[in-house]
Amino acid sequence: MEKKSVWKKITSSRETSLVIVLLVLVALISIKNPSFLGMQNILEILKNNSVIMIMALGMLCVLLIGGIDISITSSLAFAGMTVGMLFKNGVIHSTLLGFVIAMAIGAVCGLVTGLIIAKGNVTPIIATMGFMYIYRGFAYLVANSQWAGADALGDFKNFALESYLGLGFLNNVLFIVLICYIVFFVILKWTKFGRNIYAVGSNAEAAQISGINVARVKLSVYTMMGFLAGLCGALAVTIYASAQPNMQQGKEMDVIAACVIGGVSMNGGRGSVGGALLGALILSVIAKALPLVGIDALAQNTVKGFIIIVVIVLNVVTQRMMDKSNLERREM
């Protein structure tokens, strides 16, 4: 009996089905193109998608409280561009300082967004749409019609190539991704703050009554999102060895899509770190795999969008089937 229920739990869990989807995808692709499974290739995929993977964590929290943030790539660009220009103009030389500045800018951006949403009661989609324009504008103003190329970035660009943080085994960028995932997993599973995030998204009114400061939770979540966007700003600059004001434009939709594929509900209260990770991985594997299996790179977006739609529709269909079988089991 106990064994059966454990089995049932595994098969009915969203994460497991995503793992299966991911494995099937990887298997299919590697049959067609064995080089896909090479260590080098996998690390490359992970590194190129690290920005999406990290921001998916912040977006997970934002979606969990029933919000949304489409300003993230703008604050990313603002933070990244600022750091880029600081290096270019020789104001700073330290990689660490570059990261700190980027994270600080991102956190402030997130804090302001959070204040408008939590204290000003502006709906998240509108507030972040406004800030999407504003922060992107800031990025352009900072850039002042220039951009920071590889030669201007000095040591900073080497950060993504080296692996001193990962003790020589793991690339620096991937090490940061790993740390972020561990931290968020712990926060969301084992801390009061993490559980309060779920509570606010599940029933904000009840949360208020049980003494949770809903506004503060919201504010913290958006600040956290901004902080991660800032971090990703710095990461994007070092990974691509360039800072441009239009960097990562439109990628906020990829981040949201990763979460949605990972089973995070847009109504709040439902979703997990594992889901966000798997969603991001599935998206990035697909993007990388299409050319390998002979689909024109031009069709990439079409396939991606199509998969998003199929996944969400499948979600609804399975839910309906589950409801139906539940009803049929009812004794009358």
């Binding site: 559980r195 779920y198 509570a199 998204g201 599940s202 029933n203 009114e205 009840a206 949360a207 009554i209 049980s210 509900s265 209260g269 439902r270």
Partner: peptide
């Protein structure tokens, strides 16, 4: 009921 429908009974 001021409950959280998405969370477990314990929570």
């Amino acid at each position: 009921p001021t409950s959280y429908p998405d969370l477990t009974v314990t929570e």
